[in-house]
Design a protein around this nucleic acid. Structure first.
Lengths: 210, 210
DNA sequence: TAGATTGTTAATCGATTAACAATC
DNA sequence: TAGATTGTTAATCGATTAACAATC
């Protein structure tokens, strides 16, 4: 909790990635790791990794590297992996269904505990581990839920986002093509699958041999 | 084709986004747009938008803004929206199925034309508009396909990536948690859904009020 | 001790943005 | 002409990386 706004955003985005690979190493029984080895695994420059870690203090030992267990424990606390964050999912279409079935359970501190859809045929259906509720219930059913995954059609995104904000949601993972407007204290991350695919194609054609 | 490597990557990544919103404006019947209006829509600073556009030359008119149709036509060519890029999808699980059903058809120049899976029960099944083939066929069935979407389990990612590279694929959209290694002339974009969700939670907790 | 690898500095690189002259 | 808005410069900001002294 202390480092707060001192951590660069680029660093913060890499933390969950480090955490997962550290977890893998731990499961493989490795007890130490160097920034160089980690670099090969996560494809991030080793200097960047050391830089990232150093924002949290001296986590390693010179000439030795990092103790996997220690580092893992440290990141577990830093990333709040010890407590679970409940997430709501809005829009049980193709993508929403995929997420509900997957549910990020693998090595994760997040859990989808509620799902909503506008289609009455879906309401009451069980998908993955949750039962779909009608979207009209949204405002009333978000007690203790701080984050939401938005997998609705683009045209519905802003209206639903407004409802989510009203209900006290503090973070939205938006898979909608729409760019939504929210108060500054609500965090929105955009994942625009069409844009990702199109920009991949653009890069393929315009940046040959990297 | 000419601007080539002069275009900053950050700019290139925004181009498909601009294109889509321009398309929307066009459908709405708007004939002109200012960088300010576009900024409100795509949530990118208007100076950044003007800067981005200026890499391609003087696309607008001072005191007037941009002609929607002209800009749209320009980006259509720049983003190769006139020709379709065929894409293969590997791994017909939850996420893969969602993509096949969606198929990025909406306003897009990409099309999933083949799908592969290791599960014999899925082979021969029709999902969306394609029939699933066995992954053993992968190497032989990628003629004229330049891009692939990877939605397989993490442990299989590298092996399949190697096969894809062998078969001449030049771009991979990797939804796997694994960081894959490919030659420098192959472009890989990573979308790590767990990491995205976890980093959203981290930001929510550590960067309150933005 | 010799070898290895961190933590940190400083240089570099890349992206954003404020500001405003140019001009439609 | 007056008003609007571009295109571009220059400042700033943020991220990456090479390099190496410190030290385990």
């Amino acid at each position: 909790m202390e480092p707060q706004s001192k951590i660069p955003q680029a660093t913060a985005k890499r933390l969950p990635l480090y955490y997962r690979f550290l977890n893998n190493l731990h499961l493989q029984g490795k007890t130490r790791v160097s920034s160089k080895e980690l670099s090969d695994a996560v494809k991030v420059d080793s200097a960047t990794i050391r830089r990232d870690f150093s924002y949290f203090g001296a986590l390693g030992r010179k000439g030795y590297g990092y103790n996997v267990e220690y580092l893992l424990e440290f990141f577990r606390k830093t990333l709040h992996q010890d407590k679970t964050t409940d997430v709501a999912l809005i829009g049980v279409g193709n993508l929403g269904t995929a997420f509900l079935n997957y549910n990020f359970t693998k090595n994760n501190n997040t859990r989808i505990v509620k799902a909503f859809d506008a289609n009455p045929d879906l309401v009451g259906e069980r998908v993955g581990e949750v039962t779909v509720e009608h979207i009209d219930q949204l405002a009333d059913q978000l007690k203790d839920i701080e984050a939401a995954i938005l997998t609705v059609p683009g045209h519905a995104a802003q209206t639903i986002a407004d409802t989510l904000v009203q209900a006290g949601i503090k973070g939205i993972l938006n898979f909608t093509p729409a760019r939504i407007t929210v108060p500054t204290d609500v965090r929105v991350h955009h994942i625009d699958l069409s844009v990702e695919l199109q920009s991949l194609v653009y890069f393929m054609e315009h940046y040959p041999i990297n």
